[in-house]
Simulated assay, not measured.
Amino acid sequence: MKKIIVCLLFLLPLKLQALKIAALMPSHAEIICSIGMCGDLIAVGSYCDWPKELESKPKAGDYFKPDLEKLYSLKPDLVFLPVSLNSTAASDLKKIGLKVIEIEPEKNIGDICFTAKKIASYAGRDREAEKFCLKLNLEISKFKPKKRKKIFYEIDSGFWTAGGESFLSDVLSKAGGRNIFEARKENYFKVSWETVIKENPDIIISNYSKPEYFYSLPLADKVSAVKNKKVFLLEKNHRDILVRPGPRIPRAVKKLSEMIDE
């Protein structure tokens, strides 16, 4: 009987040891905290500022240029990074012996759950990830816009915007908008003002450019958004929740829907 009990004990799931994790992308850090792993973070990126618990965490550069010396000294078990064709961050970290988990950029809101589940799978937090996804999907399902207005979203100065391969197109759609460049199968790219005029958006939203800037551009009076004074500059707190595909995306959808309906 004693042998049987011992054998059964071996079949029980072992309690996983806490991992030492580094997350250099703000959205990854926010997701990690949302699935109960904030205490496992020993380093975060320089732009990781939410939730408040992250403010006291050691900063280790960012996801394009990590602080290799800092990370090597901290020796995390895992470093989470976004897949990037324009950065050597992952290969640089691997060269100093760190285990890097690369995560594909989110193309829609549903991919936020994929990211959460992938992160959770390395720490035995699958149940927490499921709860996170249920909550996220429930909050997003509350938004049911009846009309869709054409939107130009300038994510960075110089007419940088998002295409159909970016989760931002999905966010705009859920809020009652339609990204005027959603047909382009790219994530982020630069366009010309002439192209924006041709698409004639109903609303212009910018992360950095003030409405007055758009009002002063050539042929601005030909654009519906300008004629109807529907040009908005996002405040930093609203900008952050919009560009980070994480737990605060429902707040971003709510804010956008208010701007669209204004």
Rank of each mutant, 00 (worst) to 15 (best):
D170S: 09
K147A: 13
K149T: 11
E104R: 13
A175V: 05
P145W: 11
G176Q: 12
I180R: 02
A129P: 05
S166T: 08
G176Y: 12
K107G: 14
K117S: 15
R125K: 15
R127P: 00
I155L: 14
G97M: 13
K147E: 15
I180F: 02
K149H: 12
G164Y: 01
N108K: 12
L134C: 01
F167Y: 12
F143Y: 04
K142A: 14
E104L: 08
A129E: 07
V171D: 01
S166G: 07
Y122M: 00
P105L: 09
T115N: 08
S173T: 07
C133L: 14
G164P: 10
E106G: 03
G176F: 15
I151L: 08
K135V: 10
R178M: 06
L138I: 00
S121C: 08
C113K: 12
E106C: 11
K144N: 10
K131F: 05
R178N: 06
K146W: 00
K174R: 15
K147P: 03
F143N: 02
K117P: 10
K107R: 10
S166E: 04
G124A: 08
S141G: 02
C113I: 10
R125L: 12
K99E: 11
G158Y: 10
I96S: 02
G158M: 09
C133Y: 09
G110S: 09
K94W: 01
T161F: 05
D170E: 02
F143P: 04
K95C: 10
K174F: 15
L138T: 08
P145L: 10
A123F: 02
K144A: 07
D92K: 15
Y122N: 00
G176S: 13
E104H: 07
S141I: 04
A116C: 04
K99Q: 13
K147M: 08
K131G: 04
P145N: 08
K118G: 06
K94H: 02
D111F: 04
F152G: 14
G163Q: 11
A120V: 01
L93I: 15
I101F: 06
R125N: 12
I151T: 01
K118Y: 09
R148I: 00
S169Q: 06
L136M: 14
A116W: 00
N179L: 13
D92C: 11
I119F: 04
K142M: 13
K142W: 07
N179F: 08
I140C: 14
K147I: 10
S121H: 08
D156R: 14
K131P: 00
S121F: 04
S173Y: 14
I140A: 10
K174H: 14
L136E: 10
I101P: 02
G124F: 01
L172R: 03
K95T: 12
G97E: 09
V100E: 02
K95E: 13
F114I: 05
E165W: 03
D92A: 15
S157R: 15
C133M: 13
D111V: 07
E102M: 12
S169G: 15
F114L: 07
D170R: 05
I155D: 07
E128C: 03
C133I: 07
S121P: 08
K131E: 11
D170M: 09
R178C: 01
D92E: 15
G176R: 13
L168T: 08
